[in-house]
Design a protein around this nucleic acid. Structure first.
Lengths: 329, 329
DNA sequence: CTGTTAGCGCTTTCAC
DNA sequence: GTGAAAGCGCTAACAG
C-alpha cells in the first residue's frame, strides 16, 4: 500500500505538495499538480483516512439516527439524506434506534466517539422532553419530531395542521364517531393527536384517542378491540404508516368493509395505500424535501455553530381515496 | 476533551497502562485497572477512534452495500446485520447502490479508503459477472445474489428451487398461461426466472418471461401492457416484492379481479401482501437468518482470510393466499 | 508556490 | 505487571 511519501518521491516533490494537491485547498502550480496526480495514479495511492482525521481533526462524517428503519417514511428520509450527503463528500453513518431510548443514547454516544461533524436525529419522546442541543459536542438537527419549545434546529411536518385537516375531511364527509390511534413514543404522534382533538372539539364531538407503540402489530390489536366494542367508531385516523397498516389489517380481520362499515384515514402515502381496496386517504409527506432540508440545516449549523435557531415546517398533502367517501345519509 | 495522558496523570500510571486497561487484552493488576477506570469516569474520557485506528491499523467497521434500500427485503437484511454487528462491537456503514453499477463501484472504492474490516454486498449483475473476491483489499460476503461459479462466500435463497415450487403451485391450481416478470439487474431475478422456465418446460407449456428493471413503476407498466394484450396470461409471477407491487397495481388498474381474471404470486412476504384482497401467495424469505448468516460468514472470513469458500443456501417458505386459489374448471 | 518539520492521540514494542 | 519511547500517515505552520 502506497503512502504519501511514496507519492512524493515518485513525483519528485514534497509530501506537503502532495497533500495540497489532494486536499485541493492551497495553491499549487499546474506542473506540480500534474506530476502528483500522475504519481497518485501510477501507485494507486489512497490517503489513509484515519491519519487524515487524526491530524486534521475533521471527520467528514455525519450521523443519521432514525427511530425505526422499518418505517418506510424513514427509509425515504435516509435516501434523501444520503444522496445529498455523498454529493457533498460527506459519509453517513445510519443508525436505527428502534424507538428505544437506550439504543438511542448508545448511538448518540457513539457519534461523539466517532467525532462526527453533525447528527440528524428523529428523537424518542423520552429524549425530546429533556433535549438540549448543547449537551452534545456536535451540531444536531431534529427531523420529524420536535416540540415548539425544543431548543434545536428542526425540520418537521406541520403535524397539528395536517391532522386537523384530515379530521375535518372526515367530518365533512359525515363521520362523527372518529377514533384516533397515535404513536405515544413520539412528539409527532402527540401533535397529530392534538390536531384531531381540536377539530373534534370545534365540532362539539367527543373524542376517542388511543396512544400506542407505533408498530403494526400493536395498532392491529388495539383496532381489533375498538372495532369489536359495543360502540365502534365510524372512522379511524392512524397517526403513521405503520399504524395505518395495523388498522387496515384489523378492519379486514373483523370482516368489515371500508368505508361502508368504517372509514379509515392516515399519514404517509405508502406504496400499498392506493393498492388496497378502496384505497386509503392519507396525508402524504414530502419525504425528500424533509431530508433535503435537514441536511441544509445541518451544514449551515456546522458552518455557523452559533447561528440562531432555525425551523423548517413543511405542509402535508391530503390525498383523497376511497376509504373516506361520503357517508350514506 | 480529555486525552489519554490526562487519564494517566489522574490515575498515577503510564499511558501504556491506560491503553492496556481500555483495550482489555493485556494483563493488568486489579489495582491499576480500578484506578484507570476511576480516572476515565472522572474525566469522562473517550478514546479518539481516529488515533486508535491509525496506530492499530484496525477499524472495526464493516460495510453493507445493498442494491436498493427501498426494497423492504434489504431493509430487513440491514436490521439483522446491524443488530449482530453492534453486538460484536462493529460499526456498520450502510450504503445504497440503487441498482447502479457506478454507485456500487464508488462505494466499494470508499470501503477501501475507509479501510473496513469487511463488506457485505448484494451486487448488481454487471459486477457479479466479473466478480472476484480477491480484487478487493478486504473480505467480501455476497448476500441475496450470487452465481454458482462466483468466487466468493455467499448466502442466498435457493432461488431456482423456490421459483420452481411457486410455478408448480400455480400449475397444480390449474393455471397454464403463466407469465414471469423478473428483475434483469440481478442474478436472483435470473435464477428465479430459470426455476419458472424449468417448471413450465416440464409441464410442456410455453413461457412468457419478461425482464425488467426491478422497480414498481416498471413492473406496473409491463404488466399493464401484458394484461391488455390479445392473449393475456391467466397467472403472473413477480420475482420480488417491488415487482409484485407493480403487478398488483396493474391488475387493479386494468379493472381485473384476482384470482378470477388472473392469478398472482411473488417473492417477499411484505406487510401488505396479506392485506390486499385476496391476499398474495408468496415465497417468504428468512431475512433475519440471511443477515445473520452473512455476518457469521464475514467474521469467519476476517478471522481466516485464506479459508475455503463457503456458501449458505436458505430455503424459502411458500405462503399460500387467495391470489392463487384453484381455477374454476 | 514549495519544502521542512512538528505533532494529532493512540498502541505497541522493548526494557525493566 | 509496568513505563519509556517510537512511530502509525497525514496536515498545518512556518520558513524560504
Amino acid at each position: 500500500m502506497a503512502r504519501i511519501v511514496d507519492v512524493a518521491r515518485e513525483a519528485g516533490v514534497s509530501v506537503a505538495s502532495v497533500s495540497r494537491v489532494l486536499s485541493g485547498q492551497d495553491k499549487v502550480s499546474e506542473e506540480t499538480r500534474a506530476r502528483v496526480l500522475a504519481a497518485v495514479k501510477a501507485l494507486d495511492y489512497r490517503p489513509d483516512l484515519a491519519a487524515r482525521r487524526l491530524r486534521s481533526r475533521r471527520t467528514d462524517m455525519i450521523g443519521l439516527i432514525v427511530s425505526d428503519i422499518r418505517n418506510p417514511f424513514f427509509t425515504d428520509i435516509s435516501r434523501a439524506v444520503e444522496d445529498m450527503a455523498y454529493e457533498r463528500g460527506l459519509r453517513v453513518i445510519l443508525c436505527n434506534a428502534d424507538e428505544d431510548p437506550a439504543k438511542e443514547a448508545f448511538y448518540l454516544d457513539l457519534m461523539r466517539n466517532e467525532n462526527v461533524s453533525g447528527v440528524i436525529l428523529s428523537p424518542t419522546l423520552t429524549l425530546l422532553e429533556r433535549f438540549n442541543a448543547a449537551d452534545y459536542g456536535f451540531p444536531v438537527v431534529l427531523v420529524d419530531r420536535c416540540e415548539r419549545d425544543t431548543d434545536a434546529d428542526a425540520v418537521t411536518l406541520d403535524n397539528f395542521d395536517a391532522a386537523r385537516r384530515l379530521t375535518e375531511h372526515l367530518l365533512e364527509r359525515g363521520y362523527r364517531h372518529i377514533a384516533c390511534l397515535y404513536g405515544e413514543a413520539s412528539a409527532t404522534g402527540r401533535q397529530r393527536h392534538e390536531g384531531y382533538e381540536v377539530a373534534m372539539l370545534r365540532a362539539g364531538l367527543s373524542r376517542t384517542g388511543i396512544a400506542l407503540r407505533p408498530a403494526a402489530a400493536d395498532a392491529r390489536a388495539r383496532a381489533l378491540h375498538l372495532l369489536g366494542s359495543a360502540e365502534p367508531p365510524d372512522a379511524i385516523i392512524a397517526s403513521n404508516g405503520l399504524v395505518l397498516l395495523g388498522v387496515a389489517e384489523a378492519v379486514r380481520e373483523s370482516g368489515l368493509v371500508c368505508p361502508r362499515d368504517v372509514a379509515v384515514a392516515g399519514f404517509d402515502d405508502l406504496p400499498w395505500a392506493r393498492l388496497v381496496e378502496p384505497g386509503f386517504t392519507v396525508i402524504a409527506q414530502p419525504t425528500y424535501d424533509i431530508g433535503h432540508a435537514a441536511i441544509e440545516l445541518l451544514l449551515a449549523r456546522i458552518a455557523q455553530p452559533a447561528q440562531t435557531q432555525r425551523r423548517v415546517m413543511l405542509r402535508g398533502e391530503l390525498v383523497e381515496r376511497g376509504s373516506t367517501v361520503a357517508r350514506a345519509a
